[in-house]
Amino acid sequence: MTSLEKRRPSPFFKILTYTLLILSLWFLLEAFVAISANPSMITDRSVLYLLVMGGLGLLLASYGLLVMRRQPSIWQKLAYKPATTVVECTNQQCGFKNVRRFRKGDYVFKEEGVCPQCSSPMMISAIYVESEEKAKLIKRW
């Protein structure tokens, strides 16, 4: 099960993809050089082989690159999503509102302190997380 333990794409896979990319580019270049030197070479069997192999190689390599790009966002998903606590004044006329970071022990409709404007009790009205794009990559919370 050792292969299951690794988290990043294997270096072997990376090397393979880049080698393939370079080889296929080289093949295509050779074919184009041959054709530009003598346009009738396009029907030549070995030039055709180079073109086909180069094209296929390029396709495979771009797939490899795509796979590497898409790699683990798993830590992103495990990351702490910053949460916000909204504390509002219970006096409807006042409407004083305090938005701060979430603290452990907060819960919605918990009374918390008094309003600095009208001295009515304050109450937590919302605890929410921002949309995922804003999530920072903090592993621990």
């Binding site: 998903k77 495990l78 999503k81 979430f102 452990k104 819960y107 919605v108 409709f109 605890i127 919370w141």
Partner: peptide, 24 residues
Amino acid sequence: VGALQAFSLGQPIGDGIGALVASK
């Protein structure tokens, strides 16, 4: 995995909306 954060910190989760409405 999303629930881990909520449950370890005691944050409301989306499922709590029914309870939130009732509480309000």
